[in-house]
Computed example of a mutant assay.
Amino acid sequence: MRHTWSDRILVAIGFPALGALAGWLLKLLVNWAASWPWKPWEGPMKLINNAPEPAVTIGSLVVGTLAGVVIVFLAEHEYVTVTIEDDQVTLARGDSRQTVPRSAIRAAFVDGKRLVMLGGQGQELAVESKNEGADLPSAKSIAAGFQAHGYPWLPNGDPYKNEYRRWVEDMPGLPSGSNAIFKARATALEKDDEKSIAELRAELGKLGVVVRDTDKRQWWRCVQA
């Protein structure tokens, strides 16, 4: 499942149209700015202002439309496809693909903007999050898909939500090496470095630590022994 076709068509039409409008408004802004006593980027502005009509208007519309088309392609690349089958669940986004066998899944749920599948020890088998660049289908459609195939779906969300503790630097109780990863991940969160955020989440997972984020603050719990 992906976003509905109506949503995707709206994006495919809307962004090029907005791009064309932005290009036309930019042309009007350049014409207006040409009358200013002081002109920023005087050379390019003069070139655009002196270009013959209707070529300059057509050109601005074309450039704006092409910019909108680029945004549409980028949006398509970030859509997450969730394929739910009787024996496995596959998450695909861009060039990445992750498959989880049904036998390993003990729980699945949507937690805010995150789709999460948990294993028997409470470990995260797979996570897709809009906060890490993903663009998920609706929570309603995801729930319907899991339930239709008989997966253990949790409509109330994370069963471990009361076990999370807020991470602070050099706090005790974490596996060896975890604090260094948390520090690096805190820096990545401040920079909105989505790739590093996801990679460092996976590194914490290898150490038996599950992490969730709230307003760039990190919360954690350890998986069951």
Rank of each mutant, 00 (worst) to 15 (best):
L189I: 07
R217N: 11
I105K: 13
Q121Y: 04
A202V: 10
C222P: 03
D170K: 08
E53D: 11
L66G: 08
L136D: 10
V69A: 06
E78Q: 15
L154Y: 14
K183N: 09
D170A: 13
S35E: 04
D158Q: 06
L47C: 06
A108R: 12
T57Q: 13
S6D: 13
V211P: 07
A20H: 07
G133L: 00
L18H: 03
S103M: 14
P40I: 06
P54D: 03
V30L: 09
D192P: 03
K113F: 11
S178Q: 07
V82Y: 12
H77M: 08
R166D: 12
L91M: 10
T4F: 01
I197G: 05
G122N: 06
M1D: 06
T83S: 14
A22W: 03
G145A: 15
R114L: 02
F15T: 15
D170L: 12
I142P: 02
A33T: 02
P40T: 01
E42P: 09
D192W: 08
L174H: 01
G205P: 05
N31W: 02
K113P: 13
L10H: 03
W32L: 11
K140V: 05
A34N: 11
N50Q: 12
A139I: 01
T4H: 05
F15I: 15
E190C: 03
G14V: 09
W153E: 08
S141W: 00
E124W: 04
A92D: 02
V56H: 07
T187W: 03
L25S: 11
T83L: 13
E76Q: 04
A148K: 15
V209C: 05
W153H: 05
G14H: 01
S129N: 04
P54Y: 03
D95M: 04
R8Y: 13
L125H: 06
R106V: 10
G59V: 07
A126I: 02
F109L: 06
I58R: 10
V63A: 15
R114I: 07
S60E: 04
S141P: 03
V30Q: 12
A55K: 14
A22T: 14
Q88A: 14
G59F: 08
A139G: 09
N31K: 12
K27R: 11
N31C: 00
E169Y: 05
A148H: 12
G122D: 09
R97L: 14
W32N: 14
E163D: 12
T83C: 06
G68I: 10
N156L: 03
I142E: 07
P172K: 12
R102G: 14
G68R: 01
A108W: 10
Q98N: 14
A180D: 08
A225H: 14
G205A: 04
T99S: 04
V69S: 04
L118S: 01
L29Y: 10
P175E: 01
D87E: 11
P54S: 01
E163S: 13
T81W: 01
V209E: 02
V62S: 12
L207R: 07
G120V: 09
R166N: 13
S6C: 05
I13V: 15
E85R: 11
N49P: 04
G19W: 00
S96T: 08
E53G: 10
G14T: 07
E163C: 08
L47P: 00
F73G: 11
D135W: 05
A104W: 08
G157M: 05
G119T: 07
W24A: 15
T187P: 01
A104K: 08
P54W: 02
